[in-house]
């Protein structure tokens, strides 16, 4: 049993490594959206983590459950960087005021612009295909 088990283990592990590296290499073969500043996006992600925004908020439904999903925050009506700045600095209801510098707010806004340009997170913007998989509905 051990001999067979070892071979199955090694075979599956090799497949897993190949699959993992196919994902890691993805950024190296894609062109970058010219509307974004990649350095600011990268730094904005760190601001998001520094203030642990993920404890309450989500991207594509992944994250905390206390506050709303922020994937498409930047393109929502009446939102944008000035609104973001006012919101994080003053707080609202259960959300406390955060002491972000203007530079940090700017970086966070660029990161949220990147999440916004990646696609739509609203569950109403999806349809189910013949295989039972959900896909973005281009008409919504």
């Amino acid at each position: 049993m051990r001999f067979k088990a070892r071979h199955i283990f090694l075979m599956l592990s090799t497949l897993f490594l190949a699959y993992s590296f196919s994902i890691y290499l993805h950024p190296f073969g894609t062109s970058y959206d010219k509307r974004l500043n990649r350095e600011l996006v990268s730094e904005g992600r760190l601001v998001w983590q520094k203030y642990n925004c993920q404890s309450c908020h989500q991207f594509y439904g992944l994250g905390g459950y206390l506050g709303p999903d922020l994937t498409n925050f930047m393109s929502a009506p009446g939102r944008g960087e000035p609104f973001l700045k006012a919101m994080v600095k003053s707080g609202i209801k259960q959300m406390p005021a955060f002491d972000l510098t203007d530079d940090e707010v700017h970086k966070l806004a660029e990161f949220l612009k990147a999440t916004d340009l990646s696609g739509r997170a609203d569950p109403r913007a999806f349809k189910t295909n013949n295989l039972g998989m959900i896909e973005q509905d281009e008409h919504k």
Partner: peptide, 21 residues
């Protein structure tokens, strides 16, 4: 901890894919 490398943080969708992987 791949996110420590900026190249992953720059690509939001890949970064999220790795995070949930």
């Amino acid at each position: 901890y791949l996110w420590l490398f900026p190249v992953f943080r720059e690509h939001f969708v890949t970064d999220m894919t790795i995070q949930w992987k």
